[in-house]
C-alpha cells in the first residue's frame, strides 16, 4: 500500500530529525514559553504533525522549517491559553538551578530569561530565534510568518525592553 511506503519513509525521517533537532527544539520551546514539560509536548506535537504531512512535503529541507514554525506556533497557542497568567508561570526553565550552575552564571541567565518572559510574544520569539536559534532574518520571518522588516522591528523593540534588565547584571 502507498500508505505503508510513505509511512516508513516518514518514520525514518522522523528518527533522523529527532536525533538532530529534538533537544534544541525543546530548549527553544522552553525559552519561548517557560515550561519544560509543555515544551516537550509542543515539540512532540510538531513531530507528529510533520509525520502526518510527510507525504505532502515537497522537499526534506522544508521539514526543519516546518518543525520550527509548528513549535513557534505551538508555544504561542500555549501562551494564549494561559492568558495573563502566562506573565508569571510558576515553573522556571530548568527548574531550580544547582549551586554550580548559579556559580557559572546561572543567575545572570535567569535574569535574562525572566526579563524575556515579560516581553510581548513576538518580541520574545524574534530574540530567542535569533540569539538561541541562530537563525537568519529570513528563517525567523518564515518561522514567525511575518515579514523580515517586522522581524527587525520586533527584535529591536525586544532588545530595548531587555536593556534595563541587562544593565542590572552586566
Amino acid at each position: 500500500m502507498v500508505q505503508d511506503r510513505t509511512g516508513s519513509a516518514a518514520d525514518e525521517a522522523i528518527t533522523d530529525l529527532y536525533a538532530a533537532h529534538y533537544v534544541r527544539l525543546v530548549r527553544l520551546a522552553t525559552l519561548l514559553q517557560g515550561s519544560e514539560a509543555v515544551a516537550e509536548e509542543v515539540v512532540q506535537d510538531a513531530f507528529v504533525a510533520l509525520h502526518r504531512r510527510w507525504r505532502r512535503l515537497r522537499e526534506p529541507a522544508a521539514a526543519v522549517a516546518y518543525l520550527r514554525t509548528s513549535v513557534v506556533h505551538g508555544c504561542r497557542s500555549v501562551q494564549r491559553r494561559r492568558g495573563v497568567a502566562a506573565r508569571h508561570p510558576e515553573e522556571a526553565p530548568g527548574h531550580a538551578p544547582s549551586a554550580e550552575q548559579v556559580a557559572v552564571g546561572g543567575a545572570a541567565a535567569d535574569a535574562v530569561v525572566e526579563a524575556l518572559r515579560g516581553l510581548p510574544d513576538r518580541q520574545r520569539e524574534a530574540l530567542v530565534l535569533r540569539y538561541y536559534g541562530g537563525l537568519s532574518e529570513s528563517e525567523i520571518a518564515n518561522a514567525m510568518k511575518i515579514s523580515s522588516g517586522a522581524v527587525k522591528s520586533h527584535a529591536s523593540r525586544g532588545l530595548a525592553g531587555l536593556r534595563e534588565a541587562m544593565a542590572d547584571w552586566s
Binding site: 529534538y22 525559552l31 515539540v43 512532540q44 546561572g106 541567565a109 530574540l127 530567542v128
Partner: peptide, 25 residues
C-alpha cells in the same frame, strides 16, 4: 547581544528533555 546569546544558551542547556520523546512520538 553577545551576553543575551550566552545567557539564553546557558539557560537552555539546563533543559534536559526526557529520554522517551521519540517513543512518545
Amino acid at each position: 547581544e553577545q551576553q543575551l546569546h550566552d545567557a539564553m544558551h546557558r539557560a537552555a542547556e539546563r533543559v534536559q528533555p526526557a529520554p522517551d520523546g521519540l517513543a512518545r512520538i
